[in-house]
C-alpha cells in the first residue's frame, strides 16, 4: 500500500517561467517526508508535480523523471488521471465539495471507479472516517453538509476523502496552515498514524511541525527572486535540525530568514 518515489532532474515551468530546477530526491515508503523553505521557493509546485496536478494549470509543464516504484509517472501513454488515483492530495485550504454531505464527500472518489454497492460504500466511508479520526465526531450527522464542519474537521474530512480511494501516497500542502493549534495537533497525530500505511509528503512552514511529524526533511531555497527554486539538502529530520550541512539550511531553521 505504500510506494517509493524517485525524482531525478526535475524542472517545472509556468509558461516561460521556470519555478523549480533540477530537483532529484528519493522519498521513502511508510515514512513522512517534510518539505520546508521560504515562500515562493517552489514547494507547492514540486509537490504538485508528484501527482501530475501541476499540469492542470494552463501553460504549466514539467521536464524530468518521477518514478513510483518501477512506474514512470511521466512516461509516454501514462494517463495523469490514473496517477492521481494512486497519489492523493490534501490542500492548504480545506476544500470539501460544498454541495455534498459528509458521506457524499467521502464517497465521491469511490464512485469514480464505477458502481459499487451501498453496503460496500458504507463500509469504506466508515473505515475512511475512522482512519481520519473523524468518525466519532460525525457518525450521527453523515448526511449533513461537509461545509458545516469546523476547519479542522473539514481538513480531516478531506483526508478521509483522499484515503477512501486507497492511494499509495498522500501529498499534503501545508494542511494545517489554516487551522487552530488544537486541530493542527489532531492532524499531526493523524499523520503519524497514517504513515504505517502510506508514503506521506507534507509541505510545512512550521519548523516544529516538521520536527514533530517527519522522518526526513528536504530544504528548498531560491538564489534570488525570479530564480527557480532548488533543493538545497535532504536528510534525516533529526540530522537536519541539529546539524545541517549547508549554511542556508541552518539560517532558515534558526529563523534568520524566510
Amino acid at each position: 500500500m505504500a510506494k517509493q518515489i524517485q525524482v531525478s532532474g526535475l524542472d517545472a515551468y509556468y509558461g516561460a517561467h521556470k519555478a523549480i530546477a533540477d530537483i532529484s530526491m528519493t522519498i521513502e515508503p511508510r515514512s513522512v517526508t517534510a518539505f520546508i523553505g521560504p515562500s515562493g521557493c517552489g514547494k507547492s509546485t514540486f509537490l504538485r508535480t508528484l501527482n501530475r496536478m501541476h499540469e492542470v494549470i494552463p501553460g504549466a509543464r514539467v521536464e524530468g523523471k518521477v518514478m513510483l516504484d518501477s512506474d514512470d509517472l511521466y512516461g509516454p501513454g501514462v494517463d495523469p488521471v490514473s496517477v492521481r488515483r494512486t497519489i492523493g492530495m490534501v490542500f492548504q485550504r480545506p476544500n470539501p465539495f460544498p454541495t455534498m454531505s459528509i458521506y457524499e464527500n467521502v464517497a465521491a472518489g469511490l464512485r469514480l471507479n464505477g458502481r459499487i454497492s451501498k453496503s460496500k460504500t458504507d463500509e469504506v466511508v466508515e473505515q475512511s472516517l475512522r482512519g481520519a479520526n473523524l468518525w466519532n465526531e460525525v457518525k450521527d450527522r453523515l448526511n449533513k453538509p461537509g461545509a458545516g464542519l469546523s476547519g479542522g474537521q473539514q481538513q480531516r474530512l478531506c483526508i478521509a476523502r483522499c484515503i477512501a480511494v486507497k492511494p499509495q501516497v498522500l501529498l499534503m500542502d501545508e494542511p494545517c496552515s489554516a487551522l487552530d493549534p488544537i486541530s493542527t495537533l489532531a492532524i499531526e497525530d493523524l499523520i503519524t498514524e497514517l504513515k504505517d500505511e502510506f508514503t506521506i509528503v507534507i509541505v510545512t512552514h512550521n519548523m516544529q511541525q516538521a520536527a514533530r511529524v517527519s522522518d526526513r526533511t528536504a530544504f528548498f531555497n531560491l538564489a534570488a527572486q525570479g530564480q527557480p527554486g532548488r533543493l538545497v539538502e535532504m536528510d534525516e529530520t533529526s540530522a537536519m535540525f541539529t546539524n545541517p550541512s549547508e549554511k542556508a539550511t541552518e539560517d532558515y531553521i534558526t529563523g534568520r530568514f524566510g
Partner: peptide, 25 residues
C-alpha cells in the same frame, strides 16, 4: 478553483470533475 482541483486530485477526468464540482455548484 479549489473545488475543481479537489475533484481532479481524486482522479476525476475532466467530465467527472464537471459532474462532481461544476454542475452541482
Amino acid at each position: 478553483r479549489m473545488n475543481e482541483e479537489a475533484a481532479l486530485a481524486l482522479g476525476a477526468t475532466r467530465w467527472e470533475m464537471i459532474k462532481m464540482a461544476v454542475l452541482p455548484f
